[in-house]
Design a protein around this nucleic acid. Sequence first.
DNA 1: TGCAAAAACGGGGTGGCCCTCCATATCGTA
DNA 2: TACGATATGGAGGGCCACCCCGTTTTTGCA
Lengths: 204, 204
Amino acid sequence: MPSDSRTNSPTRPMRADARRNYDRILAVAAEAIAEHGAEASLEEIARRAGVGSATLHRHFPSRQRLLEAVFGDKVEALCAAATDLAVDPDPGQALATWLGAVARHAVSNRGLAASLMRGAHDGDPTLGATCHSMITNAGADLLARARRANAARPDVSITDLLTLVNAICLAVEQEPDGAAQADRLLTLALTGAIGSERPGSGAA
Amino acid sequence: MPSDSRTNSPTRPMRADARRNYDRILAVAAEAIAEHGAEASLEEIARRAGVGSATLHRHFPSRQRLLEAVFGDKVEALCAAATDLAVDPDPGQALATWLGAVARHAVSNRGLAASLMRGAHDGDPTLGATCHSMITNAGADLLARARRANAARPDVSITDLLTLVNAICLAVEQEPDGAAQADRLLTLALTGAIGSERPGSGAA
DNA sequence: TGCAAAAACGGGGTGGCCCTCCATATCGTA
DNA sequence: TACGATATGGAGGGCCACCCCGTTTTTGCA
């Protein structure tokens, strides 16, 4: 069920001990990243997993790769959510709901936002489907639908929206009440931070 | 004319050699931060300035202090701009203009956004007027005026707005066309990223 | 089952970073 | 000029990412 991009790839299946270590590292990394964020010490992850640091670096050649492996299932969940929302009767609301879900995931999983930010644009195009592009593709459909329904500006791209979401999440990541803050700021950004409330419709 | 919080402070004036080194370090740090962002290596700054790393750490006990010293004049310029805009006939536009100016400064001076983000809320309350609080105070007046003119939501704080600006700048800092991106995203966030355009008034 | 080649492992080294101590050099002044 | 206060910076400690290469484990086959 979980996404094991190694067990059934064209390359020879992993040796049993390698697989064991791979899984251990992944589990420990998830904990460490939850504790210390995306900058968690790789050395300590290896230590806690009971493997040498070389083993960690062999399985995950870069920090980004480790992050992507750790958050793979979260990202898949978000993509699935996008698919579900793609049949929502209110495309505009569906898009907003999904962006909120992305924000919620990013806030409650430290490091996810950082992982989603750095897309394929900084080297390392090895991994075909990075978290970044998966999310982008998933969101693109929702935006397209919203646009067709005249519920989204024609000049805004899905990259714009996701950049906003991630930027906000990254910014509030270490605030005490990050979740609430992120939600507020996202709503603000989506509906207009400066009151473009039509004169007359305002308070009072 | 430049703000030398050391020359005329209640504490004894700096010795000539100390002052020389202080200035050298500051100049070199500005270059290094422009090159490598807020995470530039302090050791290399010391090396380039021709001083020992201990000297750097004595003058600037924390990275944040160095950043604040480097960006002090930029922040003062932004505060001055806020004062000027405080008499603008259109308070809503004035606020938007100022936020745009903050963004422009933050994008063209790598590290400024990072410096503005971390306010007094993480220890080190030694320095009375941090960049963070200076900017916040400066912006608060503009927002208050805009609010009185019904040109700003009553539920949005200056902290919200500055967090958005800084988050955006931080996010696009290493994109190739950062300035344009930041401008676009800020406009989006201020006016509403999802088209709340009234039916009929849209493009066409 | 036994064994050799292949695969994976991890200790330890390199080089970088931040930060501190303290013996030494420099400055300002009497 | 001489002296005390002040500033300096090299050396060293602790942490980190990353890599080399001798050693151990696993596997597939006879």
